[in-house]
């Protein structure tokens, strides 16, 4: 099953390498078209992670950088969802890594000098594994919007960065999660570099009152999809096994 190739990536669905409104792409976007090559064992395989790779607080950004008895400042949220492939199959046992700014929009990073203060109790880094049904969950605080140098009055919508592993390196994905109702989504060139509103909508998490815990913490739902398998090859291989 791991040997069935992945479906071709629909490059017109993803943001183009060069996007006029996102200045950093101008000198970093390749100018030649990508070269199509057949998938080999190199792209069909990838690293495998287990619980032993993680620490007990890795999925709790509210406490994983906090002093004992303290918690991060900000609006407490659970972010959860299911990791599936394009065929709708859950993808279990995969590493999801997240990073984000604090409630004031400041990153704990040597290169971030934004004037909003750091929070002594917030690092902004978390990770978890998807369970047997592809589900993941972590606790954090609502990140703040922040300004960034792009030639104008540019502010990022509140967002959480996601790094996701699949079965094969061809599925490797980095993306960002946004929050429903944020007016900055329509104004942000990084978001708007995604060609269709339909595609942008896949990155917008929804408030989830079912998972929200009364008097404790709100929940947002964010489902993630990785490349699926090529159906014809997949079925042929099944027949052969």
């Amino acid at each position: 099953m791991t040997d069935a190739p992945f479906k071709p990536r629909d490059l017109s669905w993803h943001p183009p390498a060069f996007y006029q409104g996102y200045r950093s792409t101008h000198l970093r976007a390749p100018q030649q078209p990508l070269l199509q090559i057949p998938q080999t064992v190199t792209e069909l395989t990838g690293p495998v992670f287990g619980q032993g790779d993680l620490g007990p607080l890795d999925d709790d950004l509210i406490t994983n950088y906090a002093a004992t008895g303290q918690t991060a400042q900000g609006s407490r949220i659970i972010v959860h969802g299911t990791l599936r492939d394009e065929d709708g199959r859950p993808v279990p046992g995969k590493l999801i890594e997240v990073w984000q700014a604090n409630a004031g929009g400041r990153y704990r990073h040597v290169n971030d000098g934004y004037l909003a203060p750091l929070d002594d109790n917030f690092g902004g880094c978390g990770r978890c594994l998807t369970d047997t049904e592809g589900r993941y969950s972590f606790r954090t605080i609502l990140p703040g919007p922040y300004p960034w140098p792009n030639g104008g009055n540019d502010w990022r919508p509140a967002h959480i960065h996601f790094s996701v592993f699949g079965d094969g390196f061809a599925q490797r994905l980095i993306t960002q999660m946004y929050f429903e109702g944020d007016p900055h989504i329509a104004l942000c060139p990084i978001v708007q570099s995604i060609p269709s509103d339909d595609a942008i909508d896949r990155l917008v998490a929804r408030l989830d009152m079912k998972r929200t815990k009364p008097m404790d913490i709100r929940a947002y739902r964010f489902d993630i999809v990785l490349r699926g398998r090529d159906a014809t090859v997949f079925e042929n291989q099944l027949e052969g096994t």
Binding site: R84, Y107, H161, V164, L173
Partner: peptide, 12 residues
């Protein structure tokens, strides 16, 4: 389903 669209990893 469609693959989740990619976004930049950003500077951080």
């Amino acid at each position: 389903l469609k693959e989740s669209p990619s976004q930049t990893a950003g500077p951080y």
